[in-house]
Design a binder for these strands. Structure first.
Lengths: 336, 336
DNA sequence: GACACTAATTGGAACGTTCCAAGAAGGGAA
DNA sequence: TTCCCTTCTTGGAACGTTCCAATTAGTGTC
């Protein structure tokens, strides 16, 4: 097949009309006569013509693509969010360029640059690690929708997030209501989401009159770190009866350690996570958690983004979605 | 910001040189004098110039993008494969267009069309549901690399897969070696991978001298169907002591049902899965499974694809990767 | 039979790059 | 001084679309 790809000119020649008419016809304009339309469609089909998106994007200065930067694929919650993103973007005829840029902010920035060169019309950030500065600079060029974080705002930036602090409070209050008082917290590290959840923990412990039982073990949102943190916890404070873990992935790791150390969940120890990861709520794991509407968050973010693309000068939207306590099988009353 | 995006012309004007020289300089040619290079780089930085990938791709007939069609995001193993894909593609300076096209072949086909319009230089299919016909037709236009399936081949098609049949045999033989004989199989539905795994099960049962205990329950690779299938199984054949489930996700669902029906895994019932899904091998779940080198498979597929892009007339590559038994905590000897 | 009007069609200019053949500037050698 | 060689630099033509203003053909109206 040494022949090059057919272009609109080839179709025009074959159908015996001008390239302009082909362009018009293939985009479904009604000012094309029926005869011409049929001839053109036939010619296009016979040649196996495919419009060249690069040329189109150049000519009408629209790429019909949005870029998505996602922290990584290891945490399945990002896949859930992406699912929502793709649903809406696809339905609106937008392509989705997904890049996953390591946790390294420098590399994330160069991934972003690639997206921008592709002329994406907007950008979605899922759990990014970029500085406020970078984001502000980029948002000058393109609208941005940020999912899960809300610490950076600007005229061209929409956000969709849940209220991590009150979610955390909900989690701790639930443990308290079951009768726990020695409740520890395994954190998600040094980032805004983790900090908010930690603050919620501190708040809730204090207002429950349990400040003396506050116990914070540093983590980093990964399962392996959750595992190690739980080991530390049970070694250093064996009388702890429950833990609020910063996210589901870590909570799964923590549960593994807890059971390995001979404690049954939830009989001997209660664990509550955060996120609503699909697999964790699967009956096998049956993790009690604070569930975010992940797919919905993805959908909302694209919806806002596309609106802003169509109409750049609207007020920035900061959406707060409601998370809810998903009560399953990993929490129970403390052993007395 | 009513000003439009700066182009190469703006940079040229500002640096006091021609657009051609700017183009040369920014692509790092050594035939540009040091003075010019510095002036150009300075001008570009001041203006915040970004090359337009659409224009570039039009001019030199390369998009530097590959397209990935992935079945869905619900099964986390696809995320693992994608991870490998992105690693290699990114390192080679390729963008990745990812579309996830429902299980519906028709829609998958239109997603594919979108990728082709974007002038992707090659396509990766992860667990597709396309007909051989469609794939052959497309492979005429672009090189294709297929991951996990190997039922379609052609001059422009590379594949990376594991040997599902022998993997399945390995799984069943392991159960047999533990002393099981009443071993059931929950399938993955009506597709090549599922069929191969089922054939492996049938083979292994027969050669183990257990044809009378063959028991196949239809499934579809989802966790919820795995759950229902296990319920059926234990109702209809309560003396079964072990199950080989077609994939990990279904296996997790199955385990939930088994435990709900009052049987302990692995004490009362053994479960083995297939895939090596990261979360399933997490200590909490600790699923015994046949582990495919998922990330590696993604890497290999892109590597092959990029080779074929550079050099179209090489022989098609059909890679077979080795899967291995990952022995964890969900299998044990049958209760006597 | 001239006129205005509508419907269908067209060629050319843009879009922002890269490539190419050709030009300008400078330095030696004759 | 002239001429040739490098080394840098340049304008113009592509690439495959879309948009626009302009043209053609056809249809009534008076």
């Amino acid at each position: 097949m040494p022949r090059r790809k057919p272009t609109i000119h080839d179709v025009a020649a074959r159908a015996g009309v001008s390239k302009s008419l082909v362009s018009l016809a293939l985009r479904g304009s009604e000012k094309v006569s029926v005869d011409s339309r049929l001839a053109i469609e036939a010619a296009a089909a016979e040649l196996g013509y495919r419009p060249n998106a690069a040329a189109r994007s150049l000519a009408d200065r629209r790429s019909r693509a949005i870029g998505v930067l996602v922290l990584d694929f290891n945490n399945p919650i990002f896949a859930q969010i992406l699912d929502g993103v793709q649903q809406v973007a696809g339905a609106q005829g937008y392509n989705t360029l997904i890049v996953t840029g390591s946790a390294d902010p420098i590399r994330q920035e160069s991934e972003l640059a690639r997206l921008l060169e592709f002329q994406v019309e907007g950008i979605i950030l899922i759990a990014h690690r970029l500085t406020a500065n970078t984001i502000m600079r980029i948002s000058d060029e393109r609208p941005i929708a940020i999912i899960t974080r809300r610490d950076v705002t600007g005229p061209n930036i929409d956000t969709v997030s849940n209220d991590d602090r009150s979610g955390a409070i909900m989690a701790v209050e639930y443990l308290v209501s079951l009768g726990h008082s020695r409740i520890a917290h395994i954190t998600g590290g040094d980032n805004q989401i983790a900090r908010d959840r930690e603050l919620g923990y501190l708040d809730a412990m204090t207002s429950a009159g349990l400040p003396q039982h506050i116990n914070v073990i540093p983590g980093d949102f990964t399962d392996s770190r959750g595992y190690r943190a739980a080991q530390e916890l049970l070694t250093a404070a064996p009388d702890t009866t429950a833990a609020f873990v910063a996210n589901d992935l870590s909570a799964l790791g923590a549960m593994a350690a807890i059971e390995e150390l001979g404690r049954q969940v939830p009989e001997d120890f209660s664990v509550i996570g955060y996120d609503g990861m699909a697999l964790a709520t699967l009956r096998t794991l049956n993790l009690t958690t604070v569930q975010q509407p992940l797919i919905e968050m993805g959908r909302l973010a694209v919806t806002n983004l596309l609106k802003r693309i169509d109409n750049p000068n609207t007020q920035p939207v900061e959406m707060r979605v409601d998370s809810q306590l998903h009560i399953a099988g990993t929490c129970g009353p403390p052993k007395t």
